[in-house]
Amino acid sequence: MNKSSISVCLALLKRDLRVFRKEWFGKFIDSIFLMATNIIIFAYFMPLMGLKQDYGVFFLIGSIAAYGFFDVISKITTLIADIKGDRLISYNLTLPMSTTMSFIYIASYWALNSAILTAMLFPIGKVILFNQWDFSIISYPKLLIFYPTIHLFYAFFALWLTATIKQISQVSRVWLRVVNPIFMFGGFFYSWQTAFTLSPTVGYLLLINPMVYILEGMRAVCLGQDGFLPFQYSFLALWGFIIFFGVDAIRRLRKILDCI
């Protein structure tokens, strides 16, 4: 990796953080509304209808892990609109960095953006659930490596979807046909163990879904290993998906944008 490419990438990230500083508060308030509403319902209302008492914490960790996934569609829409419209991306493609790095930069910013916004959900979740969520059971070293991995996955997945969608009008179709099924079958509302109990075939089939590793891994980190897929499997599988989506997204985008 060329030194110039890295320094241009860092300079672009600094610019984006300057822009982010101007708009983070609005997004932060949006996330409070989304998270607080959902967690209150699942932690305090739903147990009265028979859900387990600790379902609120289970749901909160899933929400923190999946938060970046909710934002995938807006990222895709923004980039497709740029490619079809103003083409700010073409300015980046003439900067003194490699083409591959200019796509890695986009993914890095998306990852950083969702990681910062999601980080704010930890204290919000703690305030809402208070003593239902014990911070002492979190494995902080694992969190330190797994948390950025999740956001890198979302970023490269969004980049890959951008590269596969031809028209902005197809984005809503992608939401219905791809993003939502991945989310619903990814174990947001249940653990992989539950799916395996329902049917081992279903359990094994779900292992092709990257969301399973995100949710299982994050729950293993924040709630302890018992009842979830082994952390190292989730971590490695997720890196496999990042590499696959990353390499294929860059290959496709190079072709679409006809880059050097």
């Binding site: 110039s4 600094k14 610019r15 103003d86 083409r87 073409s90 300015y91 003439t94």
Partner: peptide, 29 residues
């Protein structure tokens, strides 16, 4: 290509500027 790109300045037909930044900030970055 990187050394070449350092020596050129490209002003495209479409105004692809960073709309959320001021003129001064755009030039700074």
């Amino acid at each position: 290509i990187i050394s070449y790109r350092k020596e050129i300045g490209f002003c495209p037909q479409k105004p692809n500027l960073d709309k959320l930044l001021s003129i001064e900030e755009n030039l700074y970055f």
